[in-house]
């Protein structure tokens, strides 16, 4: 496979006056997980729908394994699978019926389809639920039957559109594990997500999307170092000590400190020179300095930057987003 799994240039989609996708350039190498990170309405799903041949682009080009998504839609369809934001299975049908139906549509004979469905149900721990309607499944089970349906024919490229939105943490971890196994077997995954954490866990590279544009692109490490490795939250015992604590923290972390609305809370971004360990070291040093200054700390935490923080950091900069786009 010489051609990239996905290659788009100047991809555009407008809905009325709204430019949902406004000139997106992406290159996704085969065999990797690529994350599209952005808030609701950023245009992630629209990009996926164009790549999956569900929507026609209004401008630019998109190729999947070298095949144009408009002119060679059937060639694209034979290599991709889509797991949509909402369960892409028939809720009225049972889990088993769904898989047999899709297997038949892929050309399996009736006995082969039944056998393949049984295999997949077993692999996804759904054998007991095989004869239950999908609408009676839990959120995690739905996701699994959905992914199972997507790998009836193991695709070369799998689109996962917000696969863990609305899932409890355990189901989310299950989905992550499944994605890792699927990728280890050679499938390329395009993942859209609202959670930096998820993109960080799974993706080799991430494109941050806002208002239909790529505003930053890189490995998770590169992205995080560009916005600071984390956020330090401190709660003091005594509100009167806050001004002094603020001064100590600002000096130790070499950054500005924000006072929370809570009179004992302080928040600061840890601008470490890249790696997360750097941020942790910097934060622990700050904690030690607070202690030696006689300031009593009730609670202390170092969090990963949230998507909000990524966004603030990326969109607050004076440079225009377009200039930051790296293809």
């Amino acid at each position: 496979m010489n051609s990239p799994a996905i290659e788009t240039a100047g991809l555009i989609k407008t809905f009325g006056d709204n430019r949902a996708v406004d000139g997106v350039d992406l290159t996704v190498p085969p065999g990797t997980v690529y994350g599209l990170l952005g808030p609701n309405g950023a245009g992630k799903t629209t990009v996926v729908r164009m790549l999956a041949t569900l929507l026609r682009p209004d401008g630019g080009t998109a190729r999947v394994f070298g095949h144009d998504v408009v002119r060679e839609a059937d060639a694209v369809r034979s290599r991709v699978s889509l797991t949509g934001q909402y369960a892409s299975v028939d809720e009225d049908l049972t889990g088993s019926e769904n898989l047999v139906l899709l297997a038949r549509l892929l050309g399996y004979s009736k006995p082969q389809a039944r056998e393949r469905a049984a295999q997949l149900l077993a692999a996804f721990g759904l054998t007991d639920a095989a004869d239950r309607q999908v609408k009676k499944y839990s959120g995690g089970m739905r996701r699994r039957i959905d992914i199972g349906a997507s790998i009836l024919n193991t695709p070369d490229l799998l689109f996962l559109d917000e696969p863990t939105t609305g899932l409890d943490p355990r189901s989310r971890n299950q989905v992550w594990d499944i994605v890792r196994i699927v990728v280890a077997n050679g499938t390329t995954v395009l993942l859209t997500t609202q959670y930096l954490d998820e993109a960080d866990q799974l993706a080799g590279r991430i494109a941050v999307i806002d208002h239909g544009r790529v505003i930053a692109e890189g490995t998770p490490g590169e992205l995080k170092s560009s916005i600071g490795a984390g956020t330090v939250h401190v709660r003091l015992r005594d509100a009167a000590q806050r001004p002094e604590a603020e001064r100590v923290l600002a000096a130790a972390l070499r950054t500005t400190v924000q006072q929370g609305s809570d009179p004992v809370a302080l928040t600061a971004r840890a601008e470490a020179g890249g790696s997360e360990r750097g941020a942790a070291e910097l934060a622990s040093r700050a904690l030690a300095q607070l202690a030696s200054a006689g300031i009593v700390v009730d609670d202390f935490s170092l969090g990963q930057p949230s998507l909000d923080e990524v966004f603030l950091a990326l969109t607050d900069r004076p440079t225009q987003p377009a200039e930051e786009a790296v293809a």
């Binding site: 050309g107 692999a123 699994r144 790998i151 193991t154 299950q174 196994i181 699927v182 077997n185």
Partner: peptide
Amino acid sequence: EAVTAYAPSRETLSAVLTRGERPRR
């Protein structure tokens, strides 16, 4: 699901992720 928590297994999943010959359209 509540009775027996599902844990994705690398072996069983890899076994179903076959890249053999696909059925004809």
